[in-house]
Design a protein around this nucleic acid. Structure first.
Lengths: 202, 202
DNA sequence: CTTGTCGTCTTTACATCGTAAGGTTAACCC
DNA sequence: GGGTTAACCTTACGATGTAAAGACGACAAG
């Protein structure tokens, strides 16, 4: 398992094959099947192993602080293992670590005074963000060069003015500066936490 | 392309192979490479084709109504093609349809009075929801039988009380009833739209 | 009518993949 | 010491993506 994580960190998750992982361990491919039912099982284990790395202990004063703390911890793990979102998404069933984690999250909300229904809604609103990542429409974190920006503007400016305006604003020279994913994640999380607080009071 | 969509609808997206798709078209596998650079290119095309099915015209009175309308339209398409989220996520670069769509979404917000910075934040908050789907932690839409629920409660009730409480509440017999994904999606969207309205005013 | 170009489709081939079936080996218990 | 068991190995099969080279018809230029 540890070897698989190391391999995924180095070469990406889609380059994990039974043969390569076995080679990493100085062993033949088929030997892995004594410890794992099949490849899907292995990947499920991988996903659960990453989730297991998230510390679930919280010392937050209230539910908001605790939730923020646990989600940031999750994000830290995800940033260390960029393949984690893929692995989690491919998961067929939640493993023990996932169960432990989700139990901790639900616990924070319930102890914080959320009803079951409110907690359920909160989980759906948070979605994968509670695990430290989000699926965006496209990657806007890459900073494109001025020349590329110019050609983009002239090529698509007519047909897609709003998209181009936004793309240009997010460049290094644009009005917003390059997109800071961490800051955006934090902003979105805070946005949702505030909304949840309002939801709870109503 | 149409044949690929049909095949994906029928057998799921991971069962799309060059040979099977070719067979569907009464042709050999290698013939596809005259029309497509490689398989990744094909899947990108698939993703863009689904996005292209989303109507981008809106007759909403304000930005909120328009955004709601376009997102629900997107959700309709996604529900018709359950493999769409996977395809969109695997996309390497946004295609023309994706560009057109994102331009429409940004346009709604900008015309609705959102600044560029606010619009940028909104996109990150909405994430994939703007395309009609969300990545959840786990699938809670399946309704489990009473016996399974009982064994679950006795097996994990001690170690994971909050998770079990939630799982039981979401069964048919539970206090919340079975999870209605559509209702949850709508609730979460409305939650975010309300938050965005507040964001705009501040 | 011939000749050459071009777009489409085919054939063959190769490396890589997951894994089924069966065999070997070393540790350990009675 | 015979039997059990867990870990590992060898061989093999079918499926996959795609590189390389060719076949065949349509069509424009000579």
């Amino acid at each position: 398992m540890a070897a698989a994580i190391e391999l995924a960190d180095r070469d990406g998750i889609e380059s994990i094959s039974m043969r390569k992982l076995a080679q990493e361990l100085g062993v033949e491919a088929m030997s892995l099947y004594t410890h794992v039912r099949n490849k899907a099982d292995l990947l499920d284990g991988l996903a659960d192993a990453v989730i297991g790395q998230i510390p679930t202990s919280t010392d937050g004063a209230d539910w908001k602080a605790s939730l923020r703390q646990i989600v940031f911890a999750a994000r830290g793990v995800v940033l260390r293992h960029p393949w984690a979102p893929r692995a989690v998404q491919a998961q067929t069933a939640p493993g023990p670590a996932a169960l432990h984690y989700i139990n901790a999250v639900i616990g924070i909300l319930r102890e914080g005074g959320f009803s079951i229904a409110q907690t359920h809604h909160a989980l759906h609103i948070l979605g994968s963000r509670v695990l430290g990542f989000t699926q965006d429409l496209f990657d806007d974190s890459g900073d494109l060069e001025p020349e590329a920006a110019a050609s983009l503007a002239s090529a698509l400016g007519q047909s897609h003015p709003y998209a181009v305006e936004m793309a240009l604003a997010v460049t290094h020279a644009g009005t917003l500066g390059p997109c800071d994913d961490d800051a955006e994640f934090e902003f979105a999380l805070e946005f949702i936490l505030d909304g949840l607080a309002r939801l709870q009071q109503s």
